[in-house]
Design a binder for these strands. Structure first.
Length: 493
RNA sequence: GAUUCGGUAGCUCAGUCGGUAGAGCAAUUGACUUUUAAUCAAUUGGUCGCGAGUUCGAUUCUCGCCCGGAUCACCA
């Protein structure tokens, strides 16, 4: 028999099955009462001897069929739910004939609910023996190949819903992400911090050097900016009398995409009254090292084949020392020497950067990538930090640190500038920079200066890039691998 | 933005020194009552990313474009 069977696309085959099912029932059920998740069943019933007594009570489980193996009058399959996978076994002697025949027409991808009893197969695999089942949702599109999963990066990012089904380790990464954020909240809650929410739509953007996304409010007839930081509103709340606050939220910067940059990303910023940047350092290393231990049960973890030790305290080095150590130049050098060094490194100095900016640029280019183990780089030139307080020992510097791990800036913190007159002057410097062509300079924020005029107590502030932290803790090479739906160019599917 | 690699069946991938393409999985039909990347037999399935150019002929060569990955730059 070699009769030719006309080709119908798999999606159309499934579509006709769905249409037939609609005639006799509902292939999109409303609900199903489970007695156990798959993992619960495994936890409760599996035994070291790989045997189970007869006469166990019936259980009800639900999930997506991810594999099917027919054997005529018997058939095996695998079910996937959020907790794990489990093999099911159906036999035409146990399931009514008609139901058994329909079962064979189900597709990989369909959701079903199964009533049955746990047992061990001859091969010793813990499974459920089906007594009855109900179709919960018909799926129309075939899942990716069962062995290799979904490999195409573009498809994985654009259709994460498929990636998550096909590649279990992806789901694990995002579960870890969720736990990380949960533990940060727990830690800060225990430390007496209050979680707050501030606007995402800003009329003046600030708190970072970045270009904003611009949008428009129709009713008020004015442009708005998506926030580039939460900083200035949170500090207004410190003025208002809150003493320990934080916000975890999405930040938007109108910039390029790279393995460590996405135009929208998640930050946590926290502010603590009566504290300075040294307090922030202690808080940062405690938070992060506790987090690593809570997730991994050890302080030393491997990231992209590098062993990183998160045990607190982290190393500390001034920016000045870092420059001499890693770039063979000191910030005391005259401007021309710094300019030459910058040129040597291939930096763009067409905007005639001031000394402080030169130093910052040289540091970014020549030093940061070399810093693998957690290290606080402290005491930055004041010119690049318009919201930070002057260093108590050196007015050319500000009290600021960045935490660098694996060449990435993980955190940034200051002793917050709270002198409204100096803040006003720093904003004015920023305006000059803007006029000179720096499209990432701060805007003047009169209302923020106004708030400072009422008095902000000494305050330590800290920002952490959550996505980068998740990258480190899940050994993810790219920020896209820790974002469910990374930013992609529009392309109709 | 630069360099570089890639885009071929639903998925994972071969391939064509220029003559309109193959495999595995999935699907379809059949066999099979303990398989587990089930097995066995058969069958179907392609705008070879898009558009030009060269050519008798382009999926293959050239150019441009689109999308993506990597590296670099930008993003302190």
């Amino acid at each position: 028999m070699t009769d030719q069977i006309p080709h119908i696309s798999e999606e159309n085959v499934r579509l006709s099955k769905r249409n037939a099912l609609i005639q006799t029932g509902n292939p999109y059920a409303y609900r199903f009462d489970r007695t156990h998740t798959l993992q619960e069943l495994i936890d409760i019933y599996t035994t070291a001897e790989k045997t189970l007594p007869e006469g166990l009570p019936e259980v009800k489980i639900a999930g997506r069929i991810i594999a099917k193996r027919g054997h005529g009058k018997a058939c095996f399959g695998n079910l996937l739910d959020d907790s794990g996978t489990l093999q099911f076994y159906a036999n035409s002697a146990l399931v009514p004939e008609e139901a058994y025949q329909t079962l064979l027409t189900l597709d990989v991808g369909d959701f079903i609910g199964i009533t049955g009893v746990p047992f061990y197969t001859n091969r010793g695999e813990f499974s459920i023996k089906m007594h009855s089942y109900i179709l919960l949702t018909k799926s129309l599109k075939p899942l990716p190949e069962k062995y290799h999963g979904l490999q195409n990066k573009e498809l994985r990012y654009r259709q994460r819903y498929v990636d998550l089904v096909a590649n279990p380790e992806v789901k694990q990464t995002f579960k870890t992400r969720s736990i990380i954020i949960q533990k940060i909240r727990q830690f800060l809650g225990n430390e007496g911090f209050l979680e707050v929410e501030t606007p995402i739509l800003h009329t003046v953007y600030g708190g970072a050097a970045a270009r904003p996304f611009i949008t428009h409010h129709n009713e008020l007839g004015q442009d708005s900016f998506l926030r580039i930081a939460t900083e200035l509103h949170l500090k207004r709340l410190i003025v208002g009398g809150f003493e320990k606050i934080y916000e975890i939220g999405r930040i938007f910067r109108n910039e390029g995409v790279s393995y460590k940059h996405n135009p929208e990303f998640t930050s946590i910023e926290l502010y603590q009254a009566y504290a300075d940047y040294t307090d922030m350092m202690t808080l940062t290393e405690t938070l992060i090292s506790d987090l690593v231990f809570a997730i991994h049960g050890t302080y030393e973890i491997s990231y992209q084949d590098k062993l990183i030790n998160f045990k607190a305290p982290f190393a500390r080095m001034t920016l000045s020392d870092a420059l001499s150590t890693y770039a063979n130049i000191t910030p005391d050098a005259d401007t021309q020497t710094l300019r030459n060094k910058a040129k040597e490194l291939g930096l763009d100095i067409s905007l005639n950067p001031e000394k402080g900016q030169l130093i910052a640029h040289i540091y970014d280019k020549a030093v940061e990538a070399q810093l693998i183990q957690p290290i606080f780089i402290t005491d930055y030139p004041w010119e690049t930090s318009p919201l930070a307080k002057r260093h108590r020992d050196n007015p050319a510097l500000v009290e600021r640190f960045e935490l660098i791990i694996s060449g990435m800036e993980l955190a940034n913190a200051f002793s917050e500038l709270n002198d409204p007159i100096e803040q006003q002057a720093r904003f004015e410097d920023q305006l000059k920079a803007q006029e000179a062509g720096d499209d990432e300079a701060h805007q003047m924020d009169d209302d923020y200066v106004n708030a400072l005029k009422y008095g902000m107590p000494p305050t330590g502030g800290l920002g952490i890039g959550i996505d980068r932290l998740v990258m480190l803790l899940t050994d993810s090479h790219s920020i896209r691998d820790v974002l469910f739906f990374p930013h992609m160019k529009d392309k109709s599917v």
